[in-house]
Structures are given as C-alpha cells and as structure tokens.
Amino acid sequence: MSLMMKVLRYEIHNTIRSKWVILYTFFFFLLGYTLFSLSGDVDKAYISLMNIVLIVIPLVSSIFGAIYLYSSREFIEMMLSQPIDRKSLFAGIYFGTSIPLAAGYLIGIITPFLIFGKVKEQTEGLIFLVLIGIALTFVFTAISFLITVLQDDKAKGLGLIILIWLVFSVIYDGIVLFIVYYFEEYPLENIMIALSIINPIDLGRILFLIKFNISALMGYTGAVFQKFFGSYLGVLISAACIFFWIIIPLFFSTKIFQKKDF
C-alpha cells in the first residue's frame, strides 16, 4: 500500500468521526426531507435543493478544509518526523478531508430521495446533483488548502477563504451582469460561455439549468448555452474545467507544502 493510502485510511477515520461531518450529512438529509414533505412537486423541490447545494457546499468545504488543515499543524509536524514524503502526506490529508465531506453529502442528499421514492422520477437530476456536489466539494477543499498553506495566520486565511467564496457565489455574477448590461449591443454569447465556465459555481448552476430546459428563459443566450453545454464538446470542456479547478490549486499547494518550514 502506498504511503498516501496509509495516511488516507487514518485521516478518513478521524474526519468521519467529526461531529461537523455528521451534522453536515444531517443538514442535507433534513433539507431534502423538508423540501419533499412541503412540496409535492419533485421539480420544485429539486430546484430549491440545487440552489442551496450551490451555496452551502463551497462554503462548508472551504471553511472545514481550512480549519482542518490549520488544526493539523502539530500532527503534520509529528508525521513529518516519520519516514514519509511530504507529497504523500499532503495528498493523504487532502483526500482524508474531502472524501468524508463528499460521502456525507452523498448520504445526506440521496436518503430523502429514497425515502420519498423519487429516485425514478428524477434519476438523471439526482445524478447531476450528486456529481456536481461532489465536484464542488473537491474544488473548494483544494482552494482552501492552497490558501491555508499560503497564509499561516488562521484569521487572515479564513477571511480570505470567505472572500473567495463570496466572489464566486455572489460578486462574480454581479460582474457578469454588469458586463452584459454594459456591452448589451455586442454579441456576448461566447464570452458568456467562457465566463460561466471559469467560475465552478456558475458552471454547476448552468449544468442544472440546461438539464431542466429552463435555459429557454434566458432567450438567445440560453439557446446558445443549450447548444454548447448540450454537446459532447461542451460537457467535455465543462468537466475539464472542474477538473482543472481541483488539479491547479492542489498542484500549487503541494509545491508550497514541500518547501514549507514546520
């Protein structure tokens, strides 16, 4: 077994017992349960669920990831005095944090679908919800790990992480709206596609919208979106983008971690 897998096994043990991960799982369960109980319409419940998932997962993954890594500092010191290379240790901690979060989300979100017997009605939607949720978990844990290795001061690091979350989930959309408004006389469709792909939260949202055929509401842009994201190439590019959002922060944080003094 590789050194990374050895660390991962124990990290998962540690994280899974954290009351925050249990609470997080329960949160999604309760959310789904309440939405399905209150509304008979699966689609409506599903869209509400999606909106909350897109806000909550990035926030919780990045804050949990950062707090976890900051509080592991002494443990990292202890582990680095053992015969293990830094790359394996860092990868072990990263996956040991993100996998339990993703698993918690998966269990929390699937259970209400099973209880209410909505899986058949919304199979494709559920798969979308699960995949996008898990992808966002890995993306935002990776971003938070990058910030954490860059910034030793916990308060500053957490502040920065909340700021990044705010930019991606709120401010970015404002900027996009501004661009659309300001350049309304120009053909912006391709730029809009590029802008939405760059932001992982927006990308998730658009994939949901396309799936629900609500893109028609967005007029011509919606039609262009539908054409792009509905094509194989579009799906491929979107998946690659999400993948880069995981790989790039992880690559740089590992590089920095390898040179860091403890």
Partner: peptide
C-alpha cells in the same frame, strides 16, 4: 508540544 488528531 504534543497535539494529535482529535478523533483518533
């Protein structure tokens, strides 16, 4: 200072 993962 000895500090270890809380839940292990």
């Amino acid at each position: 200072t000895a500090k270890y993962p809380d839940n292990l």
